[in-house]
Design a protein around this nucleic acid. Structure first.
Lengths: 346, 346
DNA sequence: CTGAAAGCGCTTACAG
DNA sequence: CTGAAAGCGCTTACAG
C-alpha cells in the first residue's frame, strides 16, 4: 500500500520543519502566529500533495478524534425489532453528522467471536471520545470503571444502576402511560384491565407504575387490574370473558416486538368486538402500521439525537448537571377509545 | 480522566520489559517462544490491571485494528427508505460481529460540517483496515487514490467506473428482471409495458436491460414497451388506456422508495381491475408488505454479509480474483400474475 | 516567528 | 529466551 503524504513530506516540499506544518494545518490562530508567507507556502504544498491528516496519529497524539462510540450488548441491528431500533439509530446518525462526528459501532465481542468478554469489549470503547450504550442489562463493573475514569458515556434509555450515576436519555413511560389511563377514566371507564408482558424491564415497570398512578388519581380500583400474559395466551376467549365481567376498557403494553398489542388487537377482532363500540382499547405505545390505535408515540428519533447531544456535551465539558433526561411522548388520540357505556353491562 | 493501564505498567508489575509484554499479549506463538513462567507472570499482571490494548496505538504501530469503515455519501440511515437500507446494514453488522470486527460509520463530512469535502472525508477512511462504500455516485478521484494505494475497499452495489477496477458486491438485476419477463412470456403475454423511473442509476438500467433481453429471447416486440414515468403520473387512466390497447401485463420497476410500484398497484385498483384476472402485474423487486405481488426478492441482508466478507478477504490478502460479485435474487411467484387471455382483447 | 525534542502506546526488526 | 531501540504520524511544551 503506497504511502500517503504526511506532514514531513509537506515540510520537505515547503522547506520548513514538520512542527511548522503541524502548526499551520491545525490552524491554531492563537498564540504564536506564523508568517503569512510561510502559512501560504505550507498550505500550497499540502494541497499540492493531497494531504489529509492521519486520524489515528491525531488521536494518539492529542486526545480527540471526533469519533463517538455506540456499544450494543446484543446486535446493533436486531432484525426482529427493526421498527424499534432503526429510528433511534437514524437519530443518532443524524445528530452525529450534524456535529461532525463519526460513529464507531462496537459490535459486541470485540475480537474473539467467542464468549463476549464485556470487560475487554467495553474498554475498547475508549477508542472513541465517548460512547453511547444500549441494552437491557448494565454490566455494572466495567461501566463503573469507565465512569470512574471520567470517560464520557450516555445510556440510551433510563438507568438506575450504580446509585443513579449513569447519565442517560430515556423516555417518560410513567407519564405517558398515566395520561392514557387518565383519558379512559375521564371517559367514564371504571372497569379496566392492563395487559402486560412477563418481563420486568424498566420500560415495563415504568408503564405499570403510570397505569397504577392514574387509577389511584381517578380513585379507581387497582386490584386485579394488572394481568401478566404472553402473546400466545391472549385470545378471543380471554377478551370475551372480560367483557362479560363488565370490563369496558383494555390497555395493552407495547413491547419492542409488538407481539402483545398485535395479539390483543387480533383477539378483539376474532371475538367479534368492535372498538370503541363494544370495548375501548388503548396501547401504551404505538403498534406498527396502526396509527388508528389510541396510545402514545415514543420519540425514538429524538431519543437518538438527544443522546448524542448529551454525549458531546459531556465530551466538550458543557453540561454537568442535567445528565439524566426524560423525553415526553406525544399522545395519540386514535379511534379505538370512546366513552364508557352509561348503563352497566351484564 | 484517569489513565488506562498500558503495557509499560504491566511490564513494571511483572518485572519484564515492555517489549516482552507486547510479545506475550500479541500471542504470537511463532518464532521466539517465551518462557512459560514469564508468560504467566505477564498474563496475570495484565489481568490484574484490567489491561486492554489501545486500538489507536495498535493501529498506528502495526496496521490492523479490526475496524471496518462504512462510508456513505449521504446519510447512513435514510429514514425515507429504511426498508431498503436497514437489512443491508443489519447484514453488515452481523457479519462484522461474526468476524470480530468493529464498524466505523463515516457520516459524511468528516469534521467541518460545511460543504462535504469528499477528498478529506474519504481519506479519513484509512483509519479503518478497509472500507465499505455506499452511494449512487462514485467520487472517482479519491476512490482511485485509495485503490492505487492498495487500500482495501468494497462497494455495496455494482460499479463500472474506473475501468472496472472497483471491487463490489452487487445484485444481478439483469437476470432477475429477465426471469420475471420470461415468466410472463411463457404465460402467453404478448403485449407488455415496462414502467420505470426517470433516474438512470445502474440498478435501473440493469433492470431495463434484463427486460429487453427477455423480450428478445421470447421474440416479442421491444418498441414502445419501456415507459418512463414518475409515480405521480401513474394513475387509473394510464392503466385503463393500456388495457384498452390490448396490454395484458405490466411490469414495474421497484425503486428504493417503492413509490412507483405503490402508485401502479393503486392505479390498477382504482381502475377497477383485478390481478391477474384483468391484468398481470409484476414488480422488479418486492414491494413493502406485499408478498402477494409477483416479482423477486433482493437479497439485501446477504448483500451486507457478502460485502463484509469480501472486504475482510481483501484485508487478509485472501481472494484476489473474484473481486466483483453479483448476487442472485429469489423469484417470488406471487399471485398477481397469471396466464394471458387466450382471445385477444379489443 | 520557527525548530528540535519528547511523547502518545503500541509493533517489529535486531542484538544479546 | 528477553531487552534496547527505532518508528508509526501526529501534538505540544519548550527553546531559540
Amino acid at each position: 500500500m503506497a504511502r500517503a503524504p504526511r506532514q514531513a513530506d509537506i515540510a520537505a516540499a515547503a522547506g520548513v520543519s514538520q512542527t511548522t506544518v503541524s502548526l499551520v494545518l491545525s490552524g491554531s490562530t492563537d498564540g504564536s502566529r506564523l508568517a503569512e508567507a510561510t502559512r501560504q507556502r505550507v498550505l500550497a504544498a499540502a494541497e499540492q500533495l493531497g494531504y489529509v491528516p492521519d486520524p489515528v496519529a491525531t488521536r494518539l497524539a492529542s486526545s480527540r478524534n471526533r469519533m463517538l462510540g455506540v456499544y450494543t450488548f446484543a446486535t446493533a441491528f436486531p432484525t426482529a425489532v427493526d421498527g424499534f431500533y432503526y429510528p433511534i439509530l437514524a437519530g443518532i446518525e443524524a445528530e452525529a453528522a450534524a456535529l461532525g462526528q463519526d460513529l464507531v459501532l462496537f459490535t459486541g465481542t470485540g475480537g474473539s467471536g467467542e464468549r463476549p468478554d464485556h470487560r475487554a469489549a467495553i474498554r475498547r470503547t475508549r477508542i472513541a471520545d465517548g460512547c453511547l450504550f444500549f441494552g437491557r442489562h448494565v454490566p455494572e463493573e466495567p461501566i463503573d470503571w469507565l465512569l470512574g475514569d471520567g470517560f464520557p458515556l450516555v445510556y440510551v434509555g433510563r438507568r438506575d444502576e450504580l446509585g443513579g450515576r449513569i447519565p442517560f436519555v430515556g423516555v417518560d413511560y410513567v407519564a405517558a402511560s398515566a395520561e392514557v389511563v387518565g383519558r379512559l377514566a375521564a371517559l367514564g371507564h371504571r372497569q379496566i384491565r392492563y395487559l402486560r408482558c412477563g418481563d420486568d424491564a424498566l420500560s415495563s415497570t415504568d408503564r405499570e407504575q403510570g397505569v397504577l398512578a392514574a387509577l389511584r388519581t381517578a380513585r379507581l380500583p387497582v386490584r386485579r387490574v394488572v394481568v401478566r400474559a404472553e402473546a400466545e395466551a391472549v385470545d378471543a376467549g380471554l377478551i370475551s370473558r372480560w367483557v362479560a365481567d363488565g370490563v369496558t376498557a383494555v390497555v395493552v403494553e407495547e413491547t419492542d416486538t409488538g407481539d402483545l398489542s398485535a395479539a390483543a388487537l387480533a383477539a378483539v377482532e376474532s371475538a367479534g368486538l368492535v372498538c370503541p363500540r363494544d370495548l375501548s382499547l388503548a396501547v401504551l405505545g404505538q403498534p406498527k402500521d396502526r396509527p388508528d390505535v389510541s396510545g402514545f408515540e415514543v420519540p425514538r428519533w429524538e431519543l437518538g439525537r438527544r443522546s448524542v447531544r448529551l454525549l458531546v456535551d459531556q465530551i466538550t465539558g458543557a453540561r454537568r448537571r442535567t445528565d439524566q433526561q426524560l423525553l415526553a411522548c406525544r399522545p395519540v388520540p386514535g379511534s379505538t377509545v370512546g366513552a364508557a357505556p352509561t348503563a352497566p353491562r351484564r
